[in-house]
Nucleic acid binder design. Structure first.
Length: 246
DNA sequence: AATGGCCCCAACCGCCGTTTC
DNA sequence: AGAAACGGCGGTTGGGGCCAT
């Protein structure tokens, strides 16, 4: 992009006419070759800007409206595991963009954690997911589970039902955050997380990444199996993920 | 009504990996 | 093989809207 061209490009908020034009040309040409699409369409925008506008705003598959509690939970759980991998998190939330997830995390979670004074123990500049996860579990997830348990007509408290299900839990994979042990059925989102875990367990590149991240754990004699047997042998995912970051 | 502070989010920036020529 | 173009990502910014004073 030469200087002359760049000077003529529009920036800032998109106008309705620009949106309409962009939608028309994306429908016509598809979601690729954004530079040429920008040129052909006559929009005085960079290809990059067009792509961003489409991906973050105009794409009809996007879900509008506030995040649900489940989405919120997922964001936090995955963030606790992967850190600021916004696009990865967004991929687990159909209709949500990385930008949306990123903004949401910054404005909601961080504020929440600060309010609860967790900053004292959490170094936000590093991936201390274990701390986040454990603290989050102590507050949000248990609160959520308690609410959901009540909503589903279960009269037992979280602790009670957790205790009751503890034995049967040993026979299963445990559910990644023991939600099932609360006596609550898995939601579609949780199933998605489970799918994701399965993906990880078979995806060698992800496994290698995990291996890198867990190298320090193995120094502490924590034996973590990478690969297909990895998750199977890790009965308590939560404990495992916490150990990754400690 | 005016104003200042804060929050939220769309848009931009810069970098890097991948694809294309 | 290498350069250029493209696409994706995470971090940052700026402006609009809301609210308290």
């Amino acid at each position: 992009m030469d200087y002359k061209k760049e000077k003529t490009l529009r920036r800032g908020p998109w106008l309705e006419e620009e949106d309409e034009r962009l939608v028309k040309f994306v429908t016509l040409l598809g979601e690729r070759r954004w530079d040429s699409l920008a040129r052909v369409s006559g929009l005085k925008r960079s290809g990059k800007s067009c792509r961003l506008r489409w991906m973050n705003y105009l794409n009809p598959s996007l879900k509008r409206g506030p995040m649900s509690q489940e989405e919120e939970t997922i964001i936090f759980q995955i963030h606790a595991f992967w850190g600021n991998k916004w696009s990865m998190i967004a991929r687990r939330l159909p209709g949500r963009t990385d930008n949306e997830v990123k903004n949401y995390y910054r404005t909601h979670f961080r504020k929440k954690m600060e309010a609860q004074n967790y900053d004292k123990i959490i170094d936000w500049s590093r991936n201390t997911g274990g701390d986040l996860l454990c603290k989050y579990k102590e507050t949000e997830i248990i609160t959520w589970a308690r609410t959901t348990t009540q909503e589903h007509g279960f009269d037992k408290t979280v602790k009670e039902s957790k205790q009751i299900n503890m034995e049967s839990d040993k026979e299963t994979n445990g559910g990644i955050f023991e939600r099932e042990s609360f006596g609550v059925m898995k939601s579609p989102y949780e199933n998605r997380i489970s799918d994701w875990i399965s993906e990880i367990s078979t995806d060698q590149s992800d496994a290698n990444l995990l291996e890198d991240r867990t190298s320090s754990s193995s120094e502490n004699n924590i034996d973590i199996n990478i690969g297909s047997s990895w998750f199977e042998e890790t009965r308590d995912f939560e404990e495992f993920s916490c150990s990754l970051w400690s």
